[in-house]
Structure formats: structure tokens, C-alpha cells
Design a protein around this nucleic acid. Structure first.
Lengths: 163, 163
DNA sequence: GTTAGTGCAAACCTTTTGCAGCTCT
DNA sequence: AGAGCTGCAAAAGGTTTGCACTAAC
């Protein structure tokens, strides 16, 4: 990563070294604010704006990919170093867990889009939202509880219709 | 759409009728602001906030899908009525044109994610960014021109700001 | 020594929220 | 009648920009 930047004449400032190291070493799916917090622990003077500018540059240079993760947890963007292999992000909308899916449908899709439209793909992103296996049961229970509560709610007045 | 809402006890106010009609009739990929502008032409009192609230409700109810379109043109969200058939959005990063891709890799992907993780999918989104066939040539020319210009460019003075 | 990069403050854009009043069923 | 909606104003959240100063090459 650093090598690639140097080759383009990008200056490797102290701040960028810190950020690059964090992005590389940390697990994936960092958003700007988290990255900023981590960076600030190492250099309290490092500004939030520098984080945004660095991420923007890395994205423009194709060194990181930008994700939304189905906007679970807000409208900020998440970043991960561009991996060798394309993958989809599978986000549980209840617990927020993110799984990565590698599979041939992805490369197949890419090839089809390229040939079908004569399109030159620079970046592709597949995000899936729903409930993970663990949360499906819990979710069912939550719905049940909510319904039960509604049913047993004091209809102190005249007979009310059920919705 | 209206029927489905009524069935859930959602009130069909004048404002919602306007917005629902616009979403249905207009081409796809409207963002909140555009929808607001269109709605305001029909009812000048209709507030932007109502647009946001309505879109949020439709999304929660699964009646519309939310798109980012690779953030071409900003960080706002776009909406389209949920179609029978799943499709990917292919966005040209130069001209902004959006193509829709229907193909079996998408349903294949869906099935694989479900069975591989035991995941219950509620919403899936595939977005592809790059250059459409028309823009590829133009893009190449732009890059060439930029390089030529850079070579022969006199030492830069003050940066000019875009108005 | 240049010129790219940084920090700071302030602006910006999109979206959400609190609340009083209005309206659909 | 009354819960559900709307409009207004104001705030929030995330990101970008103008500008003077600093540091990498």
C-alpha cells in the first residue's frame, strides 16, 4: 500500500503512516470516526479532517473499498482494504453482525455485466440485509411478545376490534 | 400500494396520495429532494419532512427499496418501488447513467447466502460502478488530454476555484 | 525551496426530532 | 373523538471547504 502510494508521488506523512497502518492491521469495516478515534490515541493532534481526506484519497486510488453495510448503525461509510477476492457483505439487521460471502455468483455477475453492457467495472458492491440464523429465533419471539402484549392490553372500554 | 397500506391501518392522507402517485408514476431512482420538488408543484404546502417520513415508512414496510447508486451525485438515497424481479444497478461514474441488470447470478447468490449462513434475507442490493461503453472512449481521451496538458503546463499559479 | 498536506473553524448537505395544531377514519 | 399525521423550526450526523501554516521531498 505504501509502496503503491509512493510510486504515485503521494507524500507519506506521519499522519498517513498512522492511518495506513491502522487500516491494514485493524479488522475490516472501519468508519471514519472509529479510525479517527484510534488514530488520535496514537497522535492526539491528528485531525478528523485528515482522516476524511486520507480515506477519500485511498478510495479514489482504488486502495480501499467503501461500504454502507445497509446503513445499519447510521449513514456513515465503512472502509476495507481492497482484497484479492470479491465478496458480498451480509449484515444482520438485528445484531449488526457482518458476514462475508465469497462465491462464484459474484464473478459470474461481474462477467455478465461486462459483456452484456460492454461496461468497464471499476467497483462492485453487494450488500445483503436480514436476520442471521441466531437472530431469527429471537426475532420471532420479539414479534410474539409484542403481539401478546397488545392482546392483553387493558381494553377497559367497550369491545375493541382486533387489528 | 395504497391497498397494502390501508390494510395495515396507515392513513391515506392527501400528502401521501401525492407522494405515492409520484413514486409509482415517475421513472425510478428518485431521491427525497427530487420527490419533494415534484410534490411541491402539486401542493406547495407539503413539507420536506413529510417526504422523508413517508419514504421511511414505505421502506420499513418493504414497499420501496433504498439505493445509493454508488453515491454518484452525492450521499443522498434513491428509492424505487420494489419490483417483482431482483436486479442490480449499474452506474456510469462519468455520465451517471443507470442500467438495470436482471440475471440468474442474483437469485443464485441469494440462494447461496440463505443456505450457506442460514440467513433470512429481507433486502439485497448490488451496485456496480464504472464506465459505460459510451464513456470509455471519452474517458480515455480525457486522460490523454490531461497528461498532455500536464506536460506542457506552465508552472501553476494560484489554484482556481470552481464557482 | 516548492508544493502537497495539515489543522482549525466554519460551512454544507441530508436527514431526524420535538412539539403544537390539524385531519383522517 | 382521538390517535395518527403534518408543518415548522431547530438540531443532529456525517462530510467537505477556505485559508494560513507546516513539513516532505
Amino acid at each position: 500500500m505504501k509502496h503503491s502510494l509512493r510510486a504515485r508521488g503521494v507524500r507519506l506523512t506521519r499522519q498517513r503512516q498512522i492511518l495506513l497502518d491502522l487500516i491494514d492491521k485493524s479488522g475490516k469495516h472501519l468508519d471514519a470516526e472509529s479510525l479517527y478515534q484510534m488514530a488520535q490515541a496514537l497522535d492526539p493532534k491528528l485531525n478528523r479532517v485528515t482522516v476524511y481526506r486520507t480515506l477519500k484519497m485511498l478510495k479514489a486510488g482504488g486502495l480501499v473499498d467503501e461500504l454502507d453495510l445497509m446503513h445499519y448503525g447510521g449513514d456513515q461509510h465503512y472502509y476495507e482494504t481492497r482484497l484479492k477476492q470479491e465478496h458480498a457483505h451480509v449484515v444482520c439487521l438485528r445484531c449488526g453482525k457482518v458476514e462475508e460471502f465469497f462465491g462464484e455468483p459474484l464473478s459470474r455477475l461481474r462477467r455478465q455485466v461486462e459483456s452484456h453492457f460492454g461496461f468497464q467495472i471499476l467497483v462492485a458492491r453487494t450488500e445483503v440485509g436480514g436476520y442471521c440464523s441466531h437472530c431469527q429465533a429471537l426475532r420471532a419471539k420479539e414479534v410474539r411478545d409484542a403481539a401478546t402484549q397488545a392482546d392483553s392490553e387493558p381494553p377497559r372500554k367497550k369491545a375493541e376490534r382486533k387489528s
